[in-house]
């Protein structure tokens, strides 16, 4: 999703949100549901957890809208709330429950192989490995990686959300990928031989 900078529309939308207009809530959810859910999928590794978390994020957005000072675009501000809530959610979730992992999206429907128990088991193994590896990354690397890979955001957009420079984002992503690859390699060596 590209970050929306249409300032006059955004200003009107913010005013409508402050006034508590339901139509404005619906517009925000329609625009940001998918990006926020993708981000939550990246952080939680579970479609059920992602949906609960996304609902909490939107409620937080609507309850905090009077704190929005328009120093950044509305989408940047929403992403910041989403990242903070996700990091807190993960921190609070003491024990990961990947055995209950439920692949999100159309994972089960995109191939004739999806009916095969072996295929489904293999997908679960890989999802488990991937999310264990993502989870083991330091918070900044994890955030940059998820914003880049799950939400397809550009370096400049990630830099704005994370309040850092583009070169820092490049460095974070480089280290995140190297670390992720190493963790996945270790996992395969131990478990999938």
């Amino acid at each position: 999703m590209s970050l929306n900078n249409d300032s006059s529309n955004e200003k009107n939308l913010v005013l409508a949100l402050i006034a508590g207009e339901e139509d404005a809530y619906r517009r925000i959810i329609n625009t940001y549901r998918k990006p926020v859910l993708r981000l939550c999928n990246g952080f939680t590794g579970s479609s059920e957890d992602a949906e609960d978390l996304a609902q909490d994020i939107f409620i937080e957005v609507f309850n905090s809208i009077n704190k929005f000072k328009a120093r950044s675009s509305l989408s940047t501000w929403i992403y910041r709330i989403a990242v903070n809530k996700s990091l807190n959610y993960i921190r609070d979730r003491k024990k990961r429950k990947y055995e209950m992992y439920s692949p999100s999206g159309d994972m089960d429907n995109d191939s004739h192989q999806a009916d095969s128990p072996d295929y489904r088991l293999m997908q679960k193994d890989h999802a488990y490995a991937l999310h264990n590896a993502i989870d083991s990354l330091p918070a900044a690397q994890r955030t940059a990686f998820i914003l880049n890979k799950y939400d397809d955001l550009k370096y400049a957009e990630i830099a704005e959300i994370m309040n850092t420079s583009i070169s820092s984002v490049e460095s974070l992503l480089f280290r995140a990928k190297r670390n992720l690859q190493k963790r996945l390699h270790d996992y395969y060596r131990k478990n999938l031989k």
């Binding site: 999928n41 479609s47 692949p103 999100s104 999206g105 159309d106 994972m107 995109d110 997908q123 999802a127």
Partner: peptide, 8 residues
Amino acid sequence: IIEKEKKI
């Protein structure tokens, strides 16, 4: 897996 999880 990421590409699959991105499909909402």
